[in-house]
Every structure is written in C-alpha cells, then in structure tokens.
Simulated assay, not measured.
Amino acid sequence: MTETTSPATRRLIAENARFVAELADRHSVTLESLLAILRSTRLGDQAARAAAIDVAAAALVGLRTETDQQRSVTLEPVVGAFQRLRADLRPLVRFGGLDVQFVEPPATGRALPGEVAHAARAIVRTAVLAFVDSGDTSRVRIQWDCDGLNLLIRIRDDGRGELTVHDDSLRPIAERVAALDGELDVSSTPGWGSDVGIVLPLDPPDQLEPLEDVSELSVRERDVLRLLVEGRPNGEIARVLGISVNTVKFHVSNLLRKTGSRNRAELAGLAR
C-alpha cells in the first residue's frame, strides 16, 4: 500500500480487517472447544471423535454463512444476539470444565446495532478464553442488560481476584470498548474473584477520520491510528498495511508521544 491510498480505500481495508478479526476470534473459541473435547476425561475415543466432528462441522457451516450474515444484519434483537453468544460458547462450556452461568437479557430490550452486537460477543469470548487460560477459574457468570441507551455487560469469575483494568489480558477488551466510545470497569476481591463491567452505547459515534487535521501526523501514522481505533493488535495492523510489526510499534510510540496519551486505549478514545 502506498502513502497515497485514499481514505475510502483505507476505510474498506479497516472494515475487512475487523471482519477477519471477528472470524478469527470466533474460531479461536472453536479450536479451544475442540481441545477441550479431545482432553475430556468424560468421553471415550468414539464419543470424543463424534463431538469434535459436530463442533467442526458447525464451525464450517458458520464460516460459509458468516459473510452473508455480516453484510445483511444491521440490527440484532438483544435476545437473539445473546443466544448467538451462548451457541458460540456451548461446546467450551460442555467439555471445558468451566461452569458458565448465562443471565438472559430482557426480551423487550432495544435491538443492537450489528457493530455493537459483534463487539459484545467478542468481548465476552475474549474474557472467557482469558479465564480458561488462567487455570484459576471454575465458574463464570455472564449478564447482559439494556437500559435503552446502552448495552450493559457484566462478567464475573471466581478466580484469584487479582484482575485490574490495566491487566494485559484485558487490553483487547479495553481497545474494543474504547473504539465504541464505551466504558470499562473492573473490581476485584482477593480470593473471591473479579467483576468486569462494560457499557456500550447503542448509538456509537460514526467512524471518524481520527485527528485528520493534525498536520504533525504523517499519512502512515493516520493509517495506523485508524486500525488501532478499531481495536486491531500490532500484528494485524502490520498485515493490513504491509509493514513490519516493529514499524507499527514505532508509529504507535510516535502517536502516544504526539497526543500525550498514556496507552493505546486512551489514544483510541482521544482519536474518537
């Protein structure tokens, strides 16, 4: 990609990167579910094989239909969006040894914009995978609610209770929340677990051309900033822009310095 790439092209690239990241996120859960099935001591070889085939087949069907759904769905009923989340996590819950409690949102809740629904599911999946990786959590409680203006998400675990809002495992969540102009709060009690609260506006601001009028930002820095606002990690930004990860880190460092931001989440929020 050249330095003269048009804003419209860059927006299309950013949209494609977000779509690919959404697919990668969903299929990370699928792979984790397959591993949980194959490691399960409750299943014999034949039963594990059958369960793994079912999960893989369902994921394949989902992959083939996801593009059409992504293009056609602009609004999702909050209950339907929550049911899709449950379906995504069902194999992991069944075979992964993690007790996940789902608190259903009210059926009368306002429909969610597609971007908010996708982000909400990705946030919960990321959190659950982080809890699984920690090895200290046996129970997770997931609750969605809607106050008419915002989607309210609460995720509580029974782990060590050492999680903070600055924890590295929450960085992808913080960036997704910031990209939608939302709020993230974390409260922990040692020995009792952590409570993660997210507020996502149902009417997020339109995608902006971040800091477009700031002359000291180069074209490449603006490209990096747009993708960073979308919540993309350095590796994905590098692939989209055709540059190295070290170059992305260099541009991010310059953006932090020029804007006075303390971290990526604050930079993303400032850009919006």
Rank of each mutant, 00 (worst) to 15 (best):
T9R: 07
L12N: 02
A17F: 06
F19A: 08
A21M: 15
E22W: 12
L31Y: 06
E32G: 02
L35K: 04
I37Y: 03
T41H: 02
R42T: 09
G44P: 10
A51T: 08
I53A: 08
A59Q: 13
V61K: 15
V61F: 13
Q69A: 14
R71C: 08
V73P: 04
T74K: 03
T74M: 09
A81P: 11
A81I: 15
R84C: 10
R86W: 03
D88G: 12
L89D: 09
R90H: 01
P91A: 03
L98A: 00
D99K: 13
D99L: 12
V100L: 05
P106K: 12
P106C: 07
A107S: 14
T108H: 05
R110P: 07
R110H: 11
A111P: 15
A119H: 00
A119T: 12
A119E: 04
R121G: 10
A122F: 11
R125C: 06
A127Q: 05
V132I: 06
V132L: 02
G135L: 02
S138K: 14
V140E: 12
V140A: 08
R141P: 11
I142S: 05
I142D: 09
W144Q: 02
L149I: 04
L149H: 15
N150K: 05
L152W: 02
I153M: 13
R154E: 13
R156A: 09
G159V: 07
R160A: 12
D168C: 04
S169V: 15
S169M: 11
P172T: 05
A174R: 09
E175N: 07
E175F: 08
R176C: 03
V177K: 01
A178V: 01
G182A: 12
E183T: 11
D185E: 15
G193C: 14
V196N: 05
D203P: 02
D206V: 15
Q207M: 13
P210R: 07
D213Y: 11
V214Y: 14
L217G: 01
V219A: 15
D223N: 12
L228D: 01
L228V: 00
G231C: 04
P233L: 11
G235E: 01
I237G: 03
S244N: 03
S244K: 09
T247G: 01
H251Q: 05
S253D: 05
L255C: 09
L255E: 14
R257I: 02
R262V: 11
R264L: 03
A268R: 00
R272T: 00
